[in-house]
Design a protein around this nucleic acid. Sequence first.
DNA 1: CTGAAAGCGCTAACAC
DNA 2: GTGTTAGCGCTTTCAG
Lengths: 339, 339
Amino acid sequence: MPSIDDVAKLAGVSTATVSAVVNGQEIVKPRTKRRILDAIHTLKYEPNFYARTLARGRSNIIGVVISDILNPFFAEIAQIVQENAIRRGYQVLISVTDFSVDRLNDAIKYMIGMRIDGILIMTSEMDDKVLKIVQERKIPAVFEDVGTVNATTSNLRIDYEGGIYRAVRCLVELGHERILFVQNPPMSLQPEQMFSHRVRAEAFQAAVDRFPNLTAHKFAGSGRSPFQAGVDCARQILQRFDITGVVASADPHAVGLLRGFQRAGKKVPGDISIIGFDNSNLCEYTDPQLASVNISRKEIAESAVETLLGMIEQNRPGVEIHIPTELVLRESVGRPRSP
Amino acid sequence: MPSIDDVAKLAGVSTATVSAVVNGQEIVKPRTKRRILDAIHTLKYEPNFYARTLARGRSNIIGVVISDILNPFFAEIAQIVQENAIRRGYQVLISVTDFSVDRLNDAIKYMIGMRIDGILIMTSEMDDKVLKIVQERKIPAVFEDVGTVNATTSNLRIDYEGGIYRAVRCLVELGHERILFVQNPPMSLQPEQMFSHRVRAEAFQAAVDRFPNLTAHKFAGSGRSPFQAGVDCARQILQRFDITGVVASADPHAVGLLRGFQRAGKKVPGDISIIGFDNSNLCEYTDPQLASVNISRKEIAESAVETLLGMIEQNRPGVEIHIPTELVLRESVGRPRSP
DNA sequence: CTGAAAGCGCTAACAC
DNA sequence: GTGTTAGCGCTTTCAG
């Protein structure tokens, strides 16, 4: 593979001049520029990214770590982050952890080795070590739902409380008196590593406490996929609880519940109303269409990039970023048959 | 950020010794090793990836280019490729083109700059320039459905013909006589850039030709999402065609068609049978569940990595990789009401 | 076992 | 305008 030296030699100039041309500095005489461009072309020269980064001392890369690329919620965020970053002159390095804390640690180390300028960590799982590594090295970072905010780390706070409260209130106002909150934690994780799951469960409890006449339970079940877990949960739920409304902590799981209830002969929303979480495109695919709490991925991705680049380029201190949620009503919610 | 020199100095050894320890060469006396490890720890040293790659002259990275990270088909392939590559000691660099030929070109150049050891290009869109760039530089590559196979490029050939043939035959055997093939090309693309779409359309035609009594049409429509496009297409289709069976070129689109037909008061499969393509998890989410032609992502991802690493590490010549397909029957297919 | 030193390919002063 | 050259941080002979 040809190097800048080869190009310089062929064009009869120095490497500095080639470098200037390659980097678009308009200080080279058109004729020599032409010669250099020709040389580049005949040699099929492509600058070595590593040498360049090493010499420059900055990578212009930001890292994005997510738990699951198959979850459209994460995928969409990754995609929008990438768009925004590219527009502002940064490459994006994506790592996927599959909910493994070990892989999260590896990803962070890998990214530090890549000398990323900043990092965006949007995983369900979290680990004190990771937080420590990132903060000790003063790497600009944006986390999701991790308490700390300081000079180099910002925190994205999604308003789960508000979203779940609105979901619960909606059911109450329609006349529901016995409802259930269903979660689907990945099997590989220890409970204490699931920040966001715990946050959601607590938010449900807080919401319920505001309605004295409400009977509420929580339930958790897992399976080979969130959807399957939902289908399985549905059966168990029907045996164990007498409820008319369900709030699920994620859409794929909610869709599974929906299917499970229907297979068991229940009508949705006639017998049971269902509200999902994330408002993914799945909500439109089902019959009845699924009500869900919307979290704007666009808002998350854009403010994350904005904040991160502010910390990187202008040395701004970390901030708390508040992401609102809203309830999107659809056909899966209605009055309970016998209130 | 500390460098290997800092570590060497603190440990009172040379950089060569530090390097040996960092790279796990078992040739350093335990006591000096201990000292070095301590120094690394107190300094929070993390090797600079760029310097290392530059010095080694090899990146141990393979590139993966896909069109759309939101399509679970691509996402799943990317994920399995990554798993396999990591297991064999390679990092994976993922680029997403969003169906843009320009971004495909950029991605390739970026990856060449990263001196990737090999590249896997699984995009719907394709471009002669890209093929040329990759082949001229003799970069080991695996493409999907691009004719050429030579010393450095392999080709993944998915058996669309067989899959579509089986879909058509299934409908014919159930008594369908008037069927339709529906495609949903991304709006941004020129037709000649859509290899895989063309391949699928031709495969449909070939299949139809084997059944003389069959009346078949093709239809293409697009919208803001494959699902929406499907919903919209459904209406147009009902106005313009009198058919009892539909084969769609992708699942999300098929789900849209299903919903569109149902909204228009049609029964599936009573009035119209539907068969999708890719057998994604969406197929289970719908009611009725969607029949679909399965393409094994696992098989694609694994044989792609296997072949690519064979070309990289053992200089094997490119090969044609054949990926089988199969029809997965589900509730969305049945006998036509009035044959 | 450990150290010295020559690169890897490029950038960015600083000269000319 | 263009060339010279000193690094960037690491690996890897080759000596000792």
